[in-house]
Design a protein around this nucleic acid. Sequence first.
DNA 1: CCTGGTATGTGCAAGAATTCACAATCATTT
DNA 2: AAATGATTGTGAATTCTTGCACATACCAGG
Lengths: 215, 215
Amino acid sequence: MTTKDSKIPGATIERIALYSRPLEKFLEQETELISSERLAALCNVNPAQVRKDLSYFGEFGVRGIGYNVRDLLSEIRKILVSDREWKLAIAGVGNMGKALVENVNLLKRGYKFVAAFDSNPERIGKRLPSGLTVQPLTSIGPSKEESGFEIGVITTGPAYAQAAADSFIRAGVRAILNFSAFQVRQPEGCLVENVDFSIKLDDLAYHLSSIRGKK
Amino acid sequence: MTTKDSKIPGATIERIALYSRPLEKFLEQETELISSERLAALCNVNPAQVRKDLSYFGEFGVRGIGYNVRDLLSEIRKILVSDREWKLAIAGVGNMGKALVENVNLLKRGYKFVAAFDSNPERIGKRLPSGLTVQPLTSIGPSKEESGFEIGVITTGPAYAQAAADSFIRAGVRAILNFSAFQVRQPEGCLVENVDFSIKLDDLAYHLSSIRGKK
DNA sequence: CCTGGTATGTGCAAGAATTCACAATCATTT
DNA sequence: AAATGATTGTGAATTCTTGCACATACCAGG
Ligand SMILES: NC(=O)c1ccc[n+]([C@@H]2O[C@H](COP(=O)([O-])OP(=O)(O)OC[C@H]3O[C@@H](n4cnc5c(N)ncnc54)[C@H](O)[C@@H]3O)[C@@H](O)[C@H]2O)c1
Ligand SMILES: NC(=O)c1ccc[n+]([C@@H]2O[C@H](COP(=O)([O-])OP(=O)(O)OC[C@H]3O[C@@H](n4cnc5c(N)ncnc54)[C@H](O)[C@@H]3O)[C@@H](O)[C@H]2O)c1
């Protein structure tokens, strides 16, 4: 990737991923051109932000014209390395876990679940609609080469999240996406993203009340 | 809420919600005291950050000692207004929607689903394990008082997310939590939080690759 | 009642991220 | 070929956020 060697804000990466969503739709509709202004409006951000975010990685637009949808999308896929397949494993095949494994959007974007683990004996051995068979957590292999997945997803109950993370790390996984309400600690050499929806609800509740309060 | 009238960073609210998770566990374990240092470690943040975040809302600790777990948690609940029940409605009762409606953690935290809507005739009329009956989207009422919910959750496919949001807004909803990959535009007078997991995966993929690349 | 040990609360400086504002650039029209 | 109009790319200004460092306050023990 041809990045300028200046520091890239963390939020820039997430926004660039965001930009790709409307672009995919425009590509389907065969819209050729898009301006930073229009793209920004669709993503709820400032147009200058769009241009600056992209400028960290190169010059993809044409002054006076805008961006070519197909080219920009392809550049973004290169930037995000989502132009290839990533193999995922999941720990905890409950409601949330099943929703993720069966989600076709993730697959379309190149995220493929290749292993599913659970500790509940009733679940082990079951075949999921996607074709995966649920395995005992203990069978997570010891090395990345053997286990064959690169990103671990955690959807166990909070009490088991750290244990699941430890197993993944022992198996050589270098990136974890954790949906449990327990905050997995970021170990050396492994990226962790914690996603907790109920925080989003708390956030909404707070802001709802403070708006009310001010009226 | 007794806030100092200085501006409160947006990130502060989300972190305060984060702090409450370990506190809940300490309360169960009957741990009485906690230091900003310990709490910070559990949440992957800086201790000064914890203290500053809390200081926007008051002085909850005791110098030389730390924070009383029970009191702090109760203060945080007051701050976040999660000391009361919030009524939610959901649009789109697919895999993801069901996982949310059946999630007991949300209920424990005071978030209660009181209505479920879907556009699929096969789903309408079905009774969910929680006791809710799935209603047609068209039956979302016109006013908040009538509809009886305050926060709308969207788990339809991306193509229907904006329509679902519009229905919620017509029904008087002032806050929306959207899980579809479509970015709902933030209308006047209504808060919108967009949550898109696949962005988190893109983020992990990017960082995984750039670490590799540098080695 | 004083002293030592500890952890909070916060002013201020440093650091990041966002937004502005405009020069640079290109297609189009006259 | 010059003028026009549009929209990018980016240095600089601005705004927001974080973290340091230390005065402040409290408890316990003598
Ligand atoms: N469902 C939601 O909407 C939602 C929302 C927010 C957060 N979460 C969090 O996501 C997690 C999963 O939610 P869910 O609704 O799927 O719960 P669930 O109870 O349906 O599923 C949890 C699954 O994890 C398995 N499990 C338990 N311990 C395990 C271990 N050590 N290793 C592997 N598997 C293990 C259980 O057998 C079960 O299958 C929970 O932590 C929950 O707090 C869920
Ligand atoms: N499942 C996941 O893990 C996951 C991950 C990331 C994003 N998402 C997003 O969450 C959304 C839901 O995912 P899912 O897995 O539950 O999909 P799903 O297909 O299982 O469920 C979608 C549901 O929405 C209903 N629906 C469609 N149009 C509607 C409308 N206008 N009003 C009300 N209901 C309508 C459908 O009948 C269906 O029941 C999707 O947008 C998906 O992209 C899901």
